[in-house]
Design a protein around this nucleic acid. Structure first.
Lengths: 199, 199
DNA sequence: AAAATAGTTGACTGTTCGGTCAAATATGGT
DNA sequence: ACCATATTTGACCGAACAGTCAACTATTTT
């Protein structure tokens, strides 16, 4: 019933671009509306507040991430291939985002999560859950590496998964600050292998 | 000649607390003035703009960091002791800041650098330089470890230093988002050893 | 075609934003 | 004591902020 529209999607898409590239607090509702070519009244027809749009944007990013990761981390692949694929995807993704948005952006969950960590409890909780989800992919890889006897059986899987995740977060965040994905491109795959300590 | 005052220092101290804990863009000049008990006119007597205060705050943090790191990374210490000391310092520092500010804050250079990466070029450049400085400490450790034959002579020092730095950045940033230093406390020292691959 | 529904619009509010300024005030050096 | 100088103050500015709302329009369902 009534008319249909893609305004909600346009707002989410624009919010992702502006908030991910710049930041949550430096982007205004007016900025988003202007870029999305949506009037402010429409904005508040779809979202009760600025933070609720940010939440919807994070939800969108999560779905997108999940669909890529579910594919890349499919148990049908060799565990080492999964990690290689992931590295390639991350690099390609960062490259494309840089071309589209004009700046290296890093990980949206980390940049927005870090900014809002002390400002919005609900957002911090949500993003903490997403970080758990990401480390779960690494845990499955590590378990399978143990089964294949490619890493020691006494490997602390939870710890190692956290280490891998931290390493990648650090790489992406410094790439954002430096606005340079050179290091990612040249060393990330090798560094990750070293970190795994695979035979 | 004329009157003296510690207003400038009070403003810097307050800016560090608010901008590090919350963020640059969510903290207003008025917020800082109110907390520092300084009138806005005085603020602009000492700083021409909000961003120039942030720069002064980063400069203050850099001096503080340098003095601690120069001591911990003194060549008179065993290289592995240097890293252990650094981990202990980071944990103690995060604990104290959490107690003082009411939230885990992570690394000030990373959180503020990430937020302003696409917003303020000069700040991004400044902070990139600080990141270089930090990795230099790790390079000196790695060189000495090679000399002591504790890691292979063909170790790619620049790459490994970057890896160590990325790992720590990732740990601190996730600790900030989760508002929890538990992982830092329990696993960081061990994980760093694993990352080094020291015999 | 009419009614019900969903989406759009632009004008509006009160507040906060970063920043300015002239006047007032306190203090160090001579 | 005096004066040059550094600091403090509070009122002020226009712009931008998040959010509101009632009127209006388009479209789908019946």
């Amino acid at each position: 019933m009534g008319r249909t529209s893609d305004t909600r999607e346009k707002l989410i898409e624009t919010a992702i671009e502006l908030m991910w590239r710049d930041s949550y607090n430096s982007v205004s509702v007016d900025d988003i509306c202007k870029k999305a070519d949506v009037k402010k009244g429409s904005f508040y027809h779809y979202f009760p507040s600025k933070i609720s749009l940010a939440n919807a944007a994070m939800q969108f990013c999560t779905r997108d991430m999940k669909s890529h990761y579910d594919n890349m981390f499919s148990p049908t692949r060799h565990p080492l291939d999964r990690l290689d694929l992931m590295v390639e995807y991350v690099i390609e993704n960062q490259k494309e985002i840089k071309a589209r948005y004009g700046h290296v952006c890093g990980c949206p969950f980390i940049t927005i999560g870090s900014e809002l960590a002390a400002q919005d409890d609900a957002m911090a909780q949500t993003i903490s859950g997403i970080l758990d989800l990401k480390t779960a992919y690494y845990k499955s890889v590590l378990k399978d590496l143990v089964d294949l006897k490619l890493i020691p059986a006494d490997t602390n899987i939870d710890e190692k998964a956290q280490d891998i995740f931290s390493f990648i977060v650090g790489q992406l965040t410094t790439a954002r600050i430096r606005n340079d994905i050179g290091y990612l491109e040249n060393h990330m795959k090798q560094s990750l292998r070293n970190l795994l300590g695979v035979a």
